[in-house]
Amino acid sequence: MAQTGQDGQTEQHFFKDPVQDRLMAVCMTLANELWVTRSRLMTLETLLAEKQLVSPDELATAGPSTDQQAALDNFADALIAALNDRQASRGAEADILKKFS
């Protein structure tokens, strides 16, 4: 709601390139989410240990299963793919208008 102000005001900028302001906002929002997720995870692990469903040693030594590892690998692939600067669909070549005029 308040992202742009009630009158559609743009946000204040502090860096030379306003894109940096926006990237900072993304980073901080992700960090906030990570803090919340880690807090939940800590709570969950504490409760599991307290109820003797899982021991701290098991939590420390357990690794992902084959399927879980594959899911993590897919996540890593998706991250790299997002950085590869390639179009995901066929785009128009620069000379397309000339070619089909």
Partner: peptide, 23 residues
């Protein structure tokens, strides 16, 4: 200073209007 200023603005913005904001 730019990071200091950015954080002052945006920590407050997130405090009120972020995903876990007061509003």
């Amino acid at each position: 200073y730019q990071i200091f200023a950015w954080l002052e603005r945006h920590l407050q913005k997130m405090k009120y209007s972020g995903p876990y904001g007061l509003a």
